[in-house]
Amino acid sequence: MTDDEGVAATAQPVSTERVRILLSVPTLEQEAMFPAETRAALADLGEVVEHQPGELLDPSRFRAALAGVDIAVTAWGFPTLGAGRLADAPELRFVMHAASSIRTLTCDDFWAAGIPVSQAGAAMAPAVAELSLAFTMALLRRTQRTDHALRGGGDWSTARSIPRAREIRGSRIGVIGASRTGREYIRLVTALGAEVLVHDPYLPEGDPLRAAQRDLHVLLRECEVLALHAPATAETRGMLGAAEFALIRDGALVVNTARAELLDADALYEEVASGRLDAALDVFEVEPLADRWRALPNVLVTPHLGGATVESRARAGRIVVDEIRRFLDGAPLQYALTRADLERMG
Rank of each mutant, 00 (worst) to 15 (best):
F284Q: 01
A134D: 10
L289P: 13
D108P: 07
A134I: 08
F327T: 07
A211P: 05
E287F: 00
A87Y: 14
F327I: 07
R180C: 02
S60F: 06
V19A: 06
A75L: 01
E235V: 09
A138E: 04
F78Y: 07
V283I: 11
S171G: 08
A99F: 05
L296M: 02
A32W: 13
D155Q: 11
D215E: 14
E222K: 01
D341W: 15
A65G: 06
A129Q: 06
D282W: 00
D88V: 04
Q334T: 10
T2I: 11
R18L: 03
R18H: 11
Q12D: 15
V19K: 02
S161G: 13
R183P: 01
F135E: 07
I176Q: 04
A260H: 11
I176F: 07
E47D: 10
R344D: 10
G153D: 12
V299H: 06
T104S: 14
H148L: 04
V321H: 06
I115L: 13
T146W: 15
R20V: 11
V198I: 08
A165K: 11
T302N: 06
A178C: 11
D322A: 15
D3V: 09
E343H: 14
A211K: 07
Y202K: 08
L57W: 15
R210V: 12
E271V: 00
R259M: 01
I162A: 10
E261N: 13
G114C: 09
D108L: 08
R259L: 08
L226G: 06
R145C: 14
T338I: 07
A83D: 15
R326A: 14
R339N: 12
W293F: 01
S132Y: 00
R249S: 14
A308G: 11
R259C: 08
V225N: 04
M96T: 02
A83N: 15
